[in-house]
Write a protein that binds this DNA or RNA. Structure first.
Length: 941
DNA sequence: GCAAGGTC
C-alpha cells in the first residue's frame, strides 16, 4: 500500500484526484475512482493501492519536559527554562494515530507537504511518526509548487528525499522561539506581578513588531510641527483657469516667501512647454502581503481579508492565499484560467483582457517555491457569494487580469513661467492608454488637463496665494503598512503576520486603527530596551535566518545554533535577574497610569479604576484609606473597565467603558455623571428627600443612599446644615431604602431565574411590573394570587409556576428563619411538608414518621415554627410516648403500619386518643371506614 | 498561563 501524506486535507484530496486520473488503469475510467472515506475522524482518499491523507499543518508541538509548568516554582525559575529539555507532543492525536496505523501496512510512503522550510519540518514530523510504527518502509519526498496535474505527476514520478538539514533548521527556530519566548514571558509577567489573562508576553516576532509601533509613537510625540509657505498664482488661458506653483516648492522662511510674493508681477510669460509620456506599469501578481494591502484599501482588516480569502480557497474559487511568490510558475495554465473565468460575473473584463493580452504576465520581485501567486481558480457568480466574499473575489480576479494586461500610458505636459523675477510651473497629465486600468479599477486615474500654451504666451495674474502650512508627523501604522514593514524586516511569515496585530491587541499592548501603543505596551518595550533584552530587535530574526541557512547547508549543526542562543539568553538573564524589582516597578508604574481617570473631587488625589479579586470593580481614590471616596461600576462580568481618552466637561474625569470579548463595549461615559444619575432615584425614595437636599449632598460629594446610611453623622450634619437628630432620622430612612432595594434586587434575581425571556417580555420587565404593583420582595410575591400575577406580562401557566416556585423558596426561607435546620428541612420538603402551616397543623408524631426525624426533634421544630407564627405550640411529644402508644395500637387486630400513619396524620397516637376520637370525623380525616374505626375503638382496653 | 508556526 502506498501512503501519501499531504500538509492539509484539501491538498490531499486534490493530489489524490490528479494521481488517480493519471494512473494507467483509471484513464479508461476518466479518473472517477477516488474513494473518499473517514478513518479515525480523518478524511482519506483511496485509489488503486494508494491512500492519501492530509495533516493539519504541524500535528506535533514542542514543549518543555514535564516539571516546568509552575510559573512560580522556586526551583524551576524562568531562567531554568533555558536549559530545560524539550519534548514533542501530538496536537492532532487522531491524525498521528491514523498515520501509525496505516504505516504498518505501507510498502511506500510519500511525504507531499508544502515546498517550503516549514513544510519540510512538517514532513519530517510525519516521517518520525511513520518510523515509530514501521522501521523499514521506504519514505520519499514529493516537491511541487502548485497542485496542478503537471507538477504533481512530475513530483511523484521523480521523487526526492526529505531534506533533514532543512528540517533541522526549522527545529532550531522552533526551540529558540520557545526558549526565549517562554522564559522572558514568565520573567516579566512575574516581575510586573501579572498573571492569568493579563500576562505580559514576549516573542521574537511580536516584540519587534510592538517596538515598531512604540517607536512610531515616540516619533509622533517628539514631533514639532514646522511652518512652511507655498506660493502659487492663479491665471487663465482661453477661459480655462490654471494654477501655477512657484518653482520653490516650500519656503521655510516666511520672509523669503513674502519677498517672492512681492517680486511676482504680471504678466506670466510661458518660457518652456514640454510634452512627455510616462508608463504606468501593470501591477505584479498578488502574494499574501500585497493582497492584504490591496484589500486594506477596500477597508478590509488584514485578518478579515485573510479569513475571506481562506473561505474562497476552500470553496475552490481562488488558489492558496498564503504565499510569498509574485511570479506565476510555468505550470500555471493561464489560458485555461481565463477560459474558466468567462463563466463568472466578470466575463466582460475577462474578454477585454483576452483581446488585449500583454506578451508575458507581469512579475514581482520575489519568486519562491511554496505556492503560486494568489490567482482565481474557479468562476463565481456574484449571487453565489456574500458581499464581502464577492469584493475579495473580484479584487483577486481583477488583479489577475491586470497582470495579463498592457501597461497604462500617460502623456504629460510641463510648463515654466516667468512672472517678474520669479519662476512658476504647472504640470498636467492625461491618460492616453488605459491599459490594465480598464480591468483593475481600484485606483482612480487622476488627470490634470492643462490648456495648450506655447512659449511666449503672456497670461494674466488673477491672484497670488501665499499659504502657511505645517509639517505633519509621520502617520501611525495602518494594519497593512505594518504587515508590509514586517515583511521588509523578515518578521513572521505569510501565514502569521496578520495574526500578530491580533495578538498585540489581545495582550492590550496596542489599540485602535491605525494602531497606537498602550502604556503597558510602551512599558514592556522600554523595560526590554533598558535592560538589554535584544528581543525587541528585528536583527534577532535575521540572525536566526542566517543560522538556519547555515544549518540547511550543513555548515552548522542544529545543536550548535541552539547552544549559542542559550548562552546569549543566559547573559540576558544575568542582567534581568539583577534588576527584577526595578523592571516590575517600571512596568507597573506605566500600567497604573492607564487606570487613573482624574482627580478625586473630595481630596484631590488620583482616582483609579480598581478590580477586586472577585468580579467587582470600582473607581477608588488613591488617597484611601484617608479618603474613602469611590464610585461603583457594574460587575466585571459585564466587561473590564478601561479608561477612554474623552474627558467629562463637568467633572474632568476620563470616560470609562466596559469591554468584553465578543460583546459590544458598554459605554459608561463619565463615571461620576453615571453614578449621580443612577443613584438619584434611590435618594429620592427617602421620604424626606427633596431636590434641595440632594444638591446639598452632591455639593459635599455624597451621591448614594449607601453613603447617607454609612458615613459619619458629623459629615452629614455639616453637609446638610442640620442637627444630629434630623440626621439620625435620615440615616434610618436611608437604611429603610437600602433594605427595600436589597429585597427588590433579590426579587429581580428570582424573577430572572424563573421567567423565560420572550420577545418583548424580558424578566426585567416582569420585575418592574411587580414593583409597580407594590410587590417588593419574595414574601410579597408568594402571597399574590395567580390572577394578580397575570397582570405582570405572564400567562396563567407561567404565573402558576412562578408562584409555586416563589412560595417554595419563601417558605423555605421562613422556616429556616424560625429555626428549622437546613438538613431537616430537606427531609420535610421531600415528605411534602413545605409550609409553616403544615408544621402547625400536623401532629409531631406524624412529622416524625414520614420524615424519619426523631419525635422529640420534630416536636421541637413544630414548636419553634408555631412560636414564630404566633400560634399556640403543640403539647410536648417524646419518643417514649410515641413508642408506647404505637406498641399499644399495633396490638389491635387489623391495625397495621399503614393505618398507623393515617391515624398519626389525624393526630391520634395512642389508645386513649383513639378511644376519645369521634369515629365519623376520624373516618373522614383518615379515609378509614367508620365501622372499622369503631371496631378498633371497641378493641381498646 | 508562555513562542511561532502550521491549518480549520
Amino acid at each position: 500500500m502506498h501512503l501519501i501524506i499531504a500538509e492539509k486535507n484539501i491538498a490531499a484530496r486534490r493530489i489524490a484526484d490528479i494521481l488517480a486520473a493519471s494512473s494507467d488503469s483509471s484513464q479508461v475510467q476518466k479518473g472517477a475512482k477516488v474513494r473518499t472515506g473517514k478513518e479515525n475522524g480523518v478524511s482519506t482518499y483511496r485509489f488503486d493501492d494508494a491512500v492519501t491523507l492530509g495533516l493539519r499543518g504541524h500535528v506535533v508541538e514542542i514543549d518543555f519536559e514535564p516539571g516546568y509548568s509552575n510559573w512560580r516554582s522556586e526551583v524551576n525559575t524562568p531562567r531554568t527554562l533555558i536549559d530545560a529539555g524539550t519534548i514533542k507532543k501530538p496536537t492532532a492525536k487522531n491524525i498521528v494515530a491514523l498515520i501509525k496505523k496505516l504505516s504498518k501496512k505501507a510498502t511506500l510512503v510519500t511525504i507531499a507537504t508544502d515546498f517550503d522550510r516549514e513544510g519540510e519540518l512538517i514532513g519530517k514530523e510525519a516521517y518520525e511518526i511513520v518510523r515509530s510504527a514501521n522501521k523499514d518502509v521506504p519514505v520519499q519526498r514529493a516537491r511541487f509548487s502548485a497542485i496542478t496535474a503537471q507538477e504533481i505527476t512530475t513530483a511523484f514520478a521523480e521523487p526526492d528525499e526529505i531534506d533533514f538539514d532543512l528540517a533541522a533548521a526549522g527545529e532550531a527556530r522552533q526551540i529558540i522561539d520557545l526558549l526565549w519566548g517562554a522564559s522572558l514571558t514568565r520573567f516579566i509577567s512575574i516581575a510586573a506581578k501579572r498573571g492569568g489573562k493579563s500576562i505580559l508576553s514576549v516573542g521574537r516576532v511580536q516584540s519587534p513588531t510592538l517596538a515598531m509601533i512604540v517607536d512610531r509613537e515616540r516619533e509622533i510625540e517628539a514631533f514639532v510641527p514646522e511652518p512652511y509657505w507655498m506660493l502659487s498664482v492663479d491665471t487663465e488661458k482661453d477661459g480655462t483657469p490654471v494654477t501655477a506653483r512657484h518653482t520653490t516648492d516650500r519656503f521655510h522662511d516666511k520672509n523669503e516667501a513674502v519677498m517672492a510674493e512681492q517680486n511676482t508681477s504680471a504678466p506670466l510669460v510661458v518660457t518652456s512647454a514640454k510634452e512627455g509620456t510616462r508608463t504606468d506599469r501593470a501591477p505584479a501578481p498578488f502574494d499574501t502581503t500585497s493582497f492584504i494591502v490591496a484589500a486594506g484599501r477596500l477597508r478590509f482588516s488584514a485578518a478579515n481579508a485573510m479569513r475571506i480569502a481562506e473561505d474562497l480557497y476552500m470553496n475552490g474559487y481562488i488558489s492558496y492565499p498564503r504565499t510569498d511568490n509574485t511570479v506565476y510558475p510555468k505550470s500555471l495554465d493561464i489560458d485555461e484560467v481565463l477560459k474558466e473565468l468567462k463563466k463568472s460575473s466578470l466575463s466582460r473584463a475577462v474578454e477585454w483582457t483576452q483581446a488585449h493580452r500583454r506578451k508575458e504576465p507581469t512579475r514581482g520581485k520575489k519568486s519562491s517555491t511554496d505556492h503560486p501567486p494568489i490567482h482565481p481558480a474557479g468562476a463565481a457568480k456574484k449571487e453565489a457569494l456574500t458581499d464581502d466574499q464577492w469584493k475579495i473575489y473580484e479584487l483577486i480576479v481583477r488583479r489577475f487580469l491586470a497582470t495579463l494586461s498592457p501597461d497604462a500610458r500617460w502623456t504629460t505636459l510641463k510648463y515654466l513661467f516667468d512672472a517678474g523675477n520669479e519662476t512658476y510651473t504647472a504640470t498636467g497629465s492625461r491618460l492616453a492608454e488605459a491599459g490594465y486600468r480598464e480591468v483593475y479599477t481600484y485606483s482612480e486615474a487622476k488627470e490634470t488637463i492643462l490648456p495648450v500654451m506655447k512659449v511666449g504666451d503672456r497670461l494674466p495674474v488673477l491672484g497670488i496665494n501665499n499659504e502657511e502650512k505645517y509639517t505633519t508627523p509621520p502617520p501611525r501604522y495602518s494594519q497593512s503598512k505594518l504587515i508590509q514593514r514586517m515583511e521588509e524586516l523578515g518578521l513572521g511569515t505569510k501565514s502569521t503576520r496578520h495574526e500578530v496585530i491580533g495578538k498585540l491587541v489581545s495582550r492590550r499592548y496596542v489599540e485602535g486603527t491605525p494602531v497606537r501603543p498602550t502604556l503597558v505596551g510602551k512599558g514592556v518595550v522600554e523595560a526590554m530596551e533598558n535592560h538589554g533584552v535584544p528581543i525587541t530587535n528585528p536583527e534577532m530574526t535575521s540572525t536566526i535566518e542566517q543560522h538556519m541557512e547555515e544549518i540547511k547547508e550543513a555548515k552548522l549543526s542544529r545543536d550548535e545554533v541552539i547552544s549559542e542562543s542559550q548562552t546569549m539568553l543566559h547573559h540576558v538573564f544575568d542582567a534581568l535577574e539583577a534588576n527584577e524589582e526595578q523592571i516590575g516597578r517600571e512596568i507597573m508604574g506605566r500600567t497604573d497610569e492607564e487606570r487613573i481617570i482624574g482627580k478625586c473631587p473630595v481630596c484631590g488625589n488620583d482616582l483609579m479604576i480598581r478590580q477586586t479579586k472577585g468580579m467587582s470593580q470600582f473607581i477608588g481614590c488613591t488617597g484611601y484609606p484617608d479618603c474613602t471616596f469611590n464610585i461603583g461600576l457594574p460587575s466585571a462580568a459585564w466587561g473590564t473597565a478601561i479608561r477612554e481618552d474623552k474627558v467629562c466637561e463637568v467633572h474632568g474625569l476620563n470616560y470609562v467603558r466596559l469591554i468584553r470579548k465578543g460583546a459590544r463595549p458598554w459605554e459608561i461615559g463619565c463615571p461620576l455623571c453615571n453614578h449621580i444619575s443612577s443613584n438619584r432615584e434611590a435618594l429620592m425614595m427617602m421620604p424626606s428627600a427633596d431636590e434641595e437636599m440632594i444638591s446639598r449632598l452632591h455639593a459635599s460629594h455624597i451621591y448614594s443612599v449607601y453613603e447617607v446610611a454609612n458615613i459619619e453623622p458629623e459629615r452629614l450634619t455639616e453637609a446638610l446644615g442640620t442637627d444630629l437628630a434630623t440626621v439620625a432620622c435620615l440615616r434610618e430612612e436611608a437604611e429603610g431604602v437600602l433594605e427595600l432595594l436589597r429585597k427588590r434586587s433579590e426579587l429581580k434575581k428570582f424573577v430572572r431565574k424563573h421567567v423565560v425571556p420572550r420577545r418583548g417580555r424580558s424578566p426585567a420587565k416582569v420585575a418592574a411590573a411587580l414593583v409597580e404593583a407594590g410587590v417588593n420582595d419574595l414574601g410579597g410575591l408568594a402571597s399574590m394570587t395567580t390572577e394578580a400575577l397575570t397582570h405582570t406580562h405572564l400567562s396563567e401557566a407561567e404565573a402558576e409556576t412562578l408562584l409555586g416556585e416563589a412560595r417554595a423558596v419563601y417558605n423555605r426561607a421562613i422556616l429556616r428563619e424560625y429555626g428549622v435546620p437546613a438538613v431537616s428541612l430537606k427531609k420535610y420538603f421531600e415528605a411534602g411538608i413545605t409550609t409553616p402551616a403544615d408544621f402547625c397543623a400536623l401532629h409531631p408524631a406524624y412529622l416524625s414518621i414520614i420524615t424519619g426525624i426523631k419525635p422529640d426533634t420534630a416536636w421541637k421544630h413544630a414548636t419553634s415554627v408555631c412560636n414564630g407564627m404566633g400560634i399556640a405550640p403543640p403539647q410536648k411529644v417524646t419518643a417514649k410516648m410515641v413508642e408506647a402508644g404505637r406498641k399499644d395500637l399495633l396490638e389491635i387486630p387489623g391495625l397495621g403500619e399503614a393505618m398507623l400513619e393515617r391515624l398519626y396524620r389525624a393526630g391520634v397516637i395512642d389508645m386513649p386518643g383513639l378511644k376519645a376520637a369521634d369515629a365519623s370525623h376520624l373516618a373522614k380525616v383518615t379515609g378509614i371506614p367508620a365501622e372499622k374505626i369503631r371496631a378498633f375503638q371497641d378493641a381498646c382496653k
